[in-house]
């Protein structure tokens, strides 16, 4: 199993094939995808760090569906105007979509609870099938399903994880061949132990994350939530200093230390390093900027210039172990 391949974004898929000599082709492949790239057939996983991250992802998932006249099904006990992760947007009245049945909000009791009020995987699967059929009959070209499973993991007297894993597996079997259905399974990252989180994550073919703040195929900038900061992918040079500085300002709040995940940074020019140091010394706190997961050759250049000439920059975490990446970690 080529687990390291998981950590490459879809944007660089062409290079992945070249780099791995086609290994990615014949091995199990878990794709990371931004929420605007979720397509029918995707059974996606979201382990969110908090409401801010969830609001970025589930909010886009729901509103994008409604805007493109796809059906949206949310299994939750919350009312339509208070859906988890869906913050109000100006000029959009969610209740009007429930009236036209483009938005279906199904309480857990109707969707996936047994007569005794416990999680019933079979019932969940039947709900999925029923809603996809209904969407088809209504003439929608696609249906987006989502629910937060955290409560199942915290259910009193929950046996082991196998029931949940089985459910996810069957859910994936049902969604993957579908030309209509796409689903995001949400779990609060802090709701269960790390090993369970990883096991659950691995029953999904797609890991969903926020839409990038910027992506032109050369440089890609993605917000990160835990730790707070940005992931910078690709190549950063003078042609993109301005957009990078702008996105860096976006995540600069008082009293929040900024981490920059450089694990997929292939190149940064001297002006870019200057820009980082300049930004770091202008921060309100002394925390500076933390550079996480520096690739060896990028670090080598910084070592040569000298960290002491880049005040305010701190070396963060080492590169992660292969396979430890992804959104569950």
């Amino acid at each position: 199993m080529q687990r390291a391949s998981k950590s490459y974004p879809a944007a660089y898929a062409g290079q992945i094939h070249a780099n791995l000599d086609g290994q990615a082709m014949d091995s199990w492949f878990q794709a990371e995808r931004s929420v605007n790239a979720i397509r029918p057939g995707d059974h996606a996983w979201l382990a969110f760090s908090g409401e801010e991250e969830r609001a970025h992802i589930i909010g886009d998932f729901v509103y994008d569906g409604l805007a493109t006249e796809e059906k949206v099904v949310y299994v939750t006990d919350a009312p339509p105007d208070r859906l988890p992760g869906v913050r109000p947007r100006h000029g959009i009245e969610l209740r009007s979509y429930t009236d036209t049945r483009q938005l279906r909000v199904i309480p857990r009791e109707q969707a996936c609870l047994s007569g005794r009020g416990r999680f019933d995987p079979d019932r969940m699967l039947r709900t999925l099938e029923r809603e996809v059929d209904a969407a088809f009959d209504q003439g929608f070209r696609a249906v987006r399903l989502t629910t937060d499973f955290s409560w199942v993991l915290n259910e009193p007297g929950r046996s082991d994880l196998s029931q949940m894993l089985g459910c996810e597996h069957q859910f994936g079997e049902a969604v993957s061949p579908s030309t209509m259905a796409m689903a995001i399974c949400q779990v609060d990252k802090h709701a269960c132990p790390q090993d369970e989180l990883v096991a659950l994550r691995d029953t999904h073919e797609v890991l969903v994350e926020v839409n990038p703040e910027f992506d032109d195929g050369i440089l890609r900038i993605v917000r990160t939530f835990e730790p707070h900061g940005l992931r910078v992918e690709g190549e950063l040079d003078a042609a993109r200093h301005a957009v990078f500085a702008e996105k860096l300002s976006l995540v600069t709040h008082e009293r929040r230390r900024i981490h920059l995940d450089f694990s997929r940074l292939r190149f940064i020019d001297l002006g870019g390093l200057n820009l980082l140091a300049h930004h770091a010394t202008g921060l309100p706190t002394d925390d500076g900027l933390v550079l996480d997961h520096l690739p060896a050759d990028v670090e080598n250049v910084i070592d040569m210039v000298g960290w002491h000439r880049l005040p305010g920059l701190a070396r963060g975490q080492e590169r992660p172990f292969p396979g430890a990446g992804g959104m569950a970690s």
């Binding site: 003078a238 190149f267 020019d269 002006g271 060896a296 990028v298 040569m304």
Partner: peptide
């Protein structure tokens, strides 16, 4: 060597950026 390649890329980018500016 691979680490020298990255150094060269940083160096040549700097020199060309200067020339462009």
């Amino acid at each position: 060597a691979e680490e020298d390649l990255q150094r060269l890329l940083v160096a040549v980018t700097e020199v060309v950026t200067n020339a462009l500016r």
